[in-house]
Nucleic acid binder design. Structure first.
Length: 488
RNA sequence: GGUCCCAUCGUCUAGUGGCCUAGGACGCUGGCCUCUCACGCCGGAAACACGGGUUCGAACCCCGUUGGGACCA
């Protein structure tokens, strides 16, 4: 709960545009979003681009794309820190004028040397305050340092961790403005959070040590200090901070791998937050239930398998008409498109039949191919299993009976299988398997009647006939080429 | 090295002093369903890091130990 019930909630998501939106950042954005929505507040997007070396336009675009894809809307911004440089300089000057900050002309080399000396003597490697009381002209190249007040306990009540306190004596006289006039991270953040009237700072755990540096700056600025909530980290399977080497970590990589945005968001929200035993949440439920009280304080390990399960669940429950265009986007180019491949209704039916088996949209796209493309790749193992010489005795009568069917619909097709099954004294499974491989190239597919219906009369018969030809041809998995493709 | 954080099944977690013989989910696994594979359904194995306190009573509160991590250098 918030400690300021009467003031509207204002939160911000403040990424540095140095790369893609990664999973940790996405979860931070998500929690901010849900917190703002839950409280009917405002979410601001701020791009912390003062590190000009590492910030790129591409990264800015990637972050915005990632947020839009995840359906995380913001109410204000994006505000760019580089558009506020004058403001930081003005306030730094103001702090100097009021004695909270001072100019420092110590060079990096000098500082490095002193740091080494201090370490050699077993002292903490901090700035020694040499320039604190010098009168340094604004004309000489200098940095601006914040005057730390020693022998103080900086305490705050973290909304997730509870009371936290730090000894200010251990803090440095932080540089707030570099020689080139650019603000440092800790200064720009505080100026912005103060100016933008942020009420709750919800951010990653990695900033927890920054908080006691920032609080004195809020005070010196005469600004209200927001509430802080530090989210636990997301680890990779080796329990270190999630990074590239743990595999895909960018949000957009999951889009490319065929994940649904709400599945990813649902997975991410359960990393650290819980609502009793509930695993699946609609967006409305998340907004209704989300709170900081039920955010845990221990880090969590990213588990791709659970995400995959959630994705499968979301695919299974998504509407066919929503799914179909998403699948089409991920479809590889068709070599010989069937006439019905361009029919949107046909594509919807394909998705409808297959979605229960797919864990990703990419899989769904792959499963769709036999119903959209004339050319068919037959899996060699499937061929060996189901299209051996003995399958001729099954495929032959089925082909004949299906060919003479006056009407291509479910009941007559079923009757064909029933009758042939009785005649040959074979169970449906034994009949279905060769036909399945003939039509889909795989031993796994939806029910055989559904497959026949969806493939349609013409392509079904063509493929069964082709399979018959194959079944009559000697075949060895080991000796021939692995792709028994392009039969049609 | 300094500062800080964290600790329930392999993983995500429920649990806020008695409802805990510790619940749910993923994964694993046995079975049912079944034309294959999934889905679904029913079942199983699997955890309170350790040691001290406090208390009539502790997964839950306190201290320590151990282990892990983050930040700064």
């Amino acid at each position: 709960m918030t400690s300021r019930p009467n003031i509207p909630v204002r939160v911000r998501f403040a990424p540095s545009p140095t790369g893609n939106l990664h999973l940790g950042g996405a979860r931070t954005a998500l929690f901010n979003f849900l917190f703002a929505r839950h409280h009917g507040g405002v979410m601001l997007l701020r791009i912390e681009d003062t590190d000009r070396e590492r910030s790129t336009e591409a990264a800015i675009a990637a972050i915005l794309d990632g947020m839009r894809w995840l359906d995380l809307t913001w109410d204000e911004g994006p505000v760019f820190q580089t558009s506020r440089l004058d403001r930081y300089r003005d306030l730094a000057l103001d702090l100097i004028a009021r004695g909270h900050a001072y100019r420092c002309v110590c060079t990096p080399d000098e500082l490095e040397e002193r740091r080494k000396d201090a370490q050699a003597k077993g002292l903490p490697p901090r700035y020694d305050g040499r320039c604190r009381d010098r009168k340094i002209s604004a004309d000489t190249p200098h940095v601006v340092r914040f005057r730390n007040i020693p022998d103080q306990i900086v305490a705050f009540d973290d909304l997730i961790r509870g009371p936290l306190s730090f000894d200010s004596g251990l803090l440095d006289d932080l540089v707030i403005l570099r020689t080139d006039g650019m603000p440092t991270y800790n200064f720009a953040v505080v100026v912005d959070d103060a100016d933008m009237k942020i009420t709750h700072v919800i951010r990653g755990d990695d900033h927890i040590n920054n908080t006691p540096r920032q609080i004195p700056i809020f005070r010196a600025l005469g600004a209200d200090i927001p509430d802080f909530a530090h989210l636990p980290m997301i680890f990779g399977s080796d329990r270190t901070k999630l990074s590239k080497r743990h595999g895909a970590t960018s949000v957009m990589a999951y889009r490319e791998m065929g994940y649904l945005p709400h599945a990813l968001a649902n997975y991410l929200v359960r990393l650290g937050w819980s609502h009793k035993d509930q695993e699946i949440f609609t967006r409305e439920e998340l907004i209704a239930h989300f709170d900081l009280d039920h955010v845990g304080s221990s880090p969590s390990v990213f588990n791709p398998e659970k995400l995959l399960w959630l994705n499968a669940h979301y695919i299974k429950n998504a509407s066919d008409t929503v799914l179909s265009p998403l699948v089409s986007e991920l479809l590889p180019p068709l070599s010989e498109p069937l006439p019905q491949a361009t029919d949107p209704d046909h594509r919807v039916r394909v998705v409808s039949l297959l979605k229960g088996r797919a864990k990703t949209l990419l899989e769904l796209a792959e499963f769709s191919l036999p119903y959209l493309d004339r050319s068919l790749a037959i899996d060699p193992v499937a061929r060996e299993k189901a299209l051996g010489p003995e399958s001729v005795f099954i495929l032959e009568p089925i082909f004949v009976a299906l060919s003479s069917l006056p009407e291509w619909s479910a009941d007559p097709i079923k009757n064909v299988f029933t009758q042939i099954g009785e005649a040959l004294n074979k169970k449906l499974g034994e009949l279905a398997q060769p036909v399945r491989v003939a039509l889909t190239g795989k031993t796994v597919s939806p029910g055989i009647f559904d497959v026949l219906m969806l493939a349609g009369r013409e392509i079904s018969l063509v493929r069964i006939e082709a399979a018959l030809a194959l079944a009559r041809t000697p075949f060895s998995v080991t000796s021939s080429s692995p792709t028994g493709k392009d039969l049609s």
